[in-house]
């Protein structure tokens, strides 16, 4: 019985179907709002779903220089880790899997999709892909440092002197004490996390790894058909997961008593977060060079997060 419930949770809610639906929706909203900001009409909001089904029907061509097994396996491994991550996020106040070290597991699970993208790109044998994965790896090194500092700061505040890493505890703390964003010491951490989200998801100005104009989409250059559809889906899932993480950790859950209404409000807040930190930044900036990206994350963003950690440590 537990196995059946688990399978249902993994596949439907909040697992694969729910998360991909919301993720693709967020990606569509992002494109539509960006188009409106750029004074165009833009594609319909469900365009990413059309794209996904179209790509599934296309032919998959594996280049001769590619390692076939790794090439096909990479998007699946990435999808699985993203689904597992979805199960850790309390959507609408319902927590499904919670241990006592959730945030550290999430840091680990967040590296797996990036690693799968890197390995998939590397195995396709193209030099464009090699440049792309090199940039992706540098981006990952760049944002891991501020990410762990932010999580340490949150864990310290929530545990009230001890370090507590469970998301459930974070949620309960926020119900009791108000949103974490309202703590003065954690505002820099929130800003740093908002700056980390575009690098994780891979939108401008931090999408140097998948630069469409320079390196022909980097690691994905040789992908086509179902694997490419899966990688695009992974990207949308990441959008959902990162905005959901921000909502859970900093804004908290709004309880209205009705589960459906909770979920709808949650999704609405995720949309708002996406628009602020991804679309807005995308519309007004250009793409960064990789050395500037690295310097930005290790000096500015890490500095902001460190300010937060020091304030938290000093007891504010």
């Amino acid at each position: 019985m537990i196995v059946l419930t688990t399978i249902l949770q993994i596949l439907i809610f909040p697992g694969f179907l729910f998360a991909s639906f919301i993720g693709l929706l967020l990606a569509g909203i992002d494109r539509k709002v960006l188009a409106r900001m750029q004074h165009r009409i833009g594609p319909p909001i469900i365009q990413p779903m059309y794209d996904f089904f179209k790509l599934c029907g296309k032919e998959t061509i594996v280049p001769a220089a590619a390692n076939r097994h790794v090439y096909m396996l990479a998007p699946w491994a990435s999808l699985c880790s993203l689904i597992v991550m979805c199960l850790f996020i309390p959507v609408g106040g319902l927590t499904f899997f919670s241990g006592n070290a959730d945030l550290i597991i999430i840091i680990y699970l967040l590296t797996i999709p990036a690693v799968c993208l890197i390995i998939g790109g590397s195995s396709s044998g193209s030099p464009y892909a090699a440049v792309g994965i090199s940039r992706e790896m540098v981006t990952m090194i760049a944002y891991e440092l501020p990410l762990i500092i932010v999580f340490l700061a949150i864990a310290r505040v929530v545990g009230r002197g001890e370090l507590v890493f469970s998301i459930k505890t974070v949620a309960e703390y926020q119900i009791a004490n108000g949103a974490l964003v309202s703590h003065i010491a954690l505002i820099p951490a929130a800003i740093a996390f908002l700056l980390i989200i575009p690098a994780e998801v891979g939108t401008q100005p931090f999408d140097t790894a998948e630069a469409e104009t320079e390196i022909c989409e980097g690691p994905l250059v040789e992908y086509s058909g179902k694997p490419l559809a899966l990688f695009k889906l992974n990207s949308s899932l990441k959008m959902f997961i990162m905005s959901a993480l921000f909502t859970t950790l900093f804004i908290g859950v709004v309880y209205t008593g009705n589960v459906i209404a909770d979920v709808v409000i949650f999704v609405a807040i995720c949309c708002l977060v996406t628009i602020i930190c991804m679309t807005l930044v995308h519309a007004v900036t250009a793409r960064l060079k990789i050395e500037h990206l690295f310097k930005f994350y290790w000096t500015v963003v890490a500095g902001i997060a460190l300010v937060s950690l020091i304030l938290v440590w000093a007891g504010l």
């Binding site: 390692n67 840091i107 590296t111 044998g125 994965i133 790896m137 990952m140 090194i141 891991e144 440092l145």
Partner: peptide, 21 residues
């Protein structure tokens, strides 16, 4: 943690250089 990520970077480099490509 940062060292762990850089270890990963180094081995991605080796895998790409020696085995893939």
């Amino acid at each position: 943690v940062v060292t762990s990520v850089m270890t990963l970077a180094s081995f991605i480099k080796v895998t790409q250089t020696v085995f893939f490509g």
